[in-house]
Every structure is written in C-alpha cells, then in structure tokens.
C-alpha cells in the first residue's frame, strides 16, 4: 500500500485526540462540575431522546407519523426484549433498560457525527453504567432470594464432584461481567472512531491518492453505523440476561 510508505515521516496522525475531554469554556482544570465537551454531548443525547420519544410522539396518532413509528419501534423492541429475555416479571424494570438503551444508542449515533464527541467511547461512562447494572442486579438477587441467590453459582444439574469447580468458574465469570460489559462498548466505539481518524490522516497527505482511504472511511463508517446500534442492543440485552439471573437464579 502506498499509504504505508507515506505514513512514517512527518505525518502527524492523532487518532486519540478526538477523545480528549476539555472544558467547553476557557482552559482551566476539569472539576467534577465543569461543563466539558463530554457533558455537552451527553446533554445532546437527552435532547435527541426528547426529540424522538417526546416531540416525535406528540401527535399520539393511531396511524403514526415517521418519528412516532420509530419511537414506537424502539419501545416495542426493548419491551419485547425485556419480556422475552428477562421474563414477564421483569417488565417493571423496563424503564431502566430503556433509559440505558436510549442513552447508548443516541450517544453512539451522535458520536458518528464528524467533529463530535463519542461519550460512550469513554471507559468511565460505560464502567459506571456496567457497575450500576451489576450492583443493581446483585442486590436485587440477594434481596429477592437471599441465600437462594447463590444457586446461581451452585449448579444442581452437574455431577457433585464438578460442582465446586463450576462454582469457582461461575463466580469468576460473574464478577468479570461488569468489566466485559463496559469494555465491550467503550472498546468498540473507541476502535471504530480511531480507525476512521487514522484513515482520515492518510487521506490528508495523499492528494489524488486519497480516494483509497476515503473509500475505506466510507466502508468503516458504514460498519460503525451498524456497530453503533448493535453495541447498544448488546448492552441492553446483556442487562436483560443479568436481570434474568437475578430474578430466576435457578438454572
């Protein structure tokens, strides 16, 4: 590839610059309350959610408009997921899962806008959500089943000799859940955006030859659009799976 030859000398590609959190106003230190680009794009997700689910459905039409259709589809999609994966008794937790899903899907799509900031590419954001899910689900399981919750780790259908080993594996996998849950989302987002930025850096120095990296950017962008939705879906469905484990710890 010609781009590889051109890349080393003098080429300055900073694929990670897009993830830097900086204050919106001025250049001071970042306190917990400082309005930053991260907070701006998080609040824009709220705006997007309001636009789609509140403004989009204000007609309350029996025959829905386009935006109302999408809002209803999102509602039905997550509602059915909660019902199918976590069980009928889990529909009470539907608003929480819908909140997570809407935030992630909107943040992912907003992050795809050029020059924007992908909030979900930050491990701090995804880890907080994953930990919240983990703690909530664990406490819910203990609260609902007490000691019975430990049946999740003690697999009754396995031979007795294997049970301690399986229990160990189950415990480890249980505590790894929030890690994989959060890194999966942040990693996907970060990788996609960084790859696009790297190709964009090539395009900047190649002149006419930039056609190749631009084609690559287009392809990766299409893939990222898919990933943006799929990762939100995966995060939501894993939350449902964990919720199911908490509500029905018996295998």
């Amino acid at each position: 590839m010609a781009s590889e030859a051109a890349a080393p000398s003098g080429l300055q590609i900073h694929p990670m610059d897009q993830f830097v959190v900086h204050p919106l106003f001025g250049d001071g230190p970042i306190h917990w309350y400082t309005p930053t680009n991260a907070s701006l794009w998080m609040l824009l997700t709220v705006v997007a959610v309001v636009l789609l689910l509140v403004i989009g459905t204000r007609g309350r039409a029996i025959v829905p408009s386009r935006s109302q259709s999408i809002a209803e589809m999102a509602y039905g999609f997550i509602y059915k997921m909660v019902e199918d994966v976590a069980g009928k008794d889990a529909v009470g937790y539907f608003p929480y899962i819908m909140t997570l899903f809407m935030f992630i899907v909107m943040a992912n799509f907003l992050g795809l806008i050029p020059m924007s900031f992908a909030t979900t590419s930050h491990i701090a954001v995804t880890a907080i959500m994953a930990m919240a899910v983990f703690l909530f689900v664990t406490l819910l399981g203990i609260f609902k089943h007490g000691f019975g919750f430990l049946h999740l780790f003690w697999i009754g259908s396995a031979p007795l000799i294997l049970r301690p080993i399986l229990a160990l594996i189950e415990v480890i996998s249980y505590f790894v859940r929030p890690v994989s849950h959060s890194i999966r989302l942040a990693g996907n987002m970060m990788a996609g955006h960084a790859v696009i930025k790297v190709f964009a850096g090539f395009a900047g120095v190649l002149g006419v030859g930039a056609v190749a990296p631009i084609a690559a950017i287009t392809a990766v962008y299409a893939l990222e659009t898919l990933v943006a939705f799929i990762q939100a879906y995966v995060f939501a469905i894993l939350t449902c799976v964990y919720l199911k484990d908490a509500l029905h710890p018996h295998h």
Partner: peptide, 8 residues
C-alpha cells in the same frame, strides 16, 4: 466530571 454528567 464524566461520571457526574453521566448521572445527570
């Protein structure tokens, strides 16, 4: 900062 604004 991110955690605060995320919670908000």
């Amino acid at each position: 900062n991110q955690i605060f604004w995320l919670i908000v």
